[in-house]
Design a protein around this nucleic acid. Sequence first.
DNA 1: GCGACAG
DNA 2: ATCTTGTCGC
Length: 192
Amino acid sequence: MVPVTAPYVAGFLAFREVPVLVEAVQRLQQEEPQLQPQVLLVDGNGLLHPRGFGTACHLGVLTDLPCIGVAKNLLHVDGLARDELHREQVRSLQRSGEAFPLTGTSGKVLGMVLRSHSNSSRPLYVSVGHRVSLGTAVRLVRACCRFRIPEPIRQADIRSREYLRRQPCAPVEGLEAVPASPESKKETELED
DNA sequence: GCGACAG
DNA sequence: ATCTTGTCGC
């Protein structure tokens, strides 16, 4: 079990999850040196990010391993949004493996929208993380998809939940739960 | 002006 | 992300 304190804020996911991911990579290198990953699929974005540096970039720099950002939803950045035009483009993806580039208002290609599986109309948002091209990233992600979610990410998800299911969170030292009361709520409303 | 916006 | 009831299809 690993305590995580930073809250989730869109655009700042790395500050919440990267420390734990780096720790996991280091443990793997130390405890299983014969299992050295050549690339990491990251549950989140890479260049497709408000500051062009999402979790996949962050983790890549800190581990010096090639990283690919794989998001299940579009993060609104550089004019990109889930508007009708975008939905129409997603609908145009018919067969598995079909994709189209995500070009922001700046004109830069920030990632690719990929239909990863024939049975799912919901696409994946693939972007460069570290030391890998966008083309290679899309090819690798597609090759890993037995279902919509790439198997490495899917298995990490399934197994971590399974672990948490039987190892309930232990209370964190020095962190006291504060129930929401009318009084405490009043203190957060700093007006005037 | 407010809300939308990876997990 | 999480919770939750039912439904559809192979």
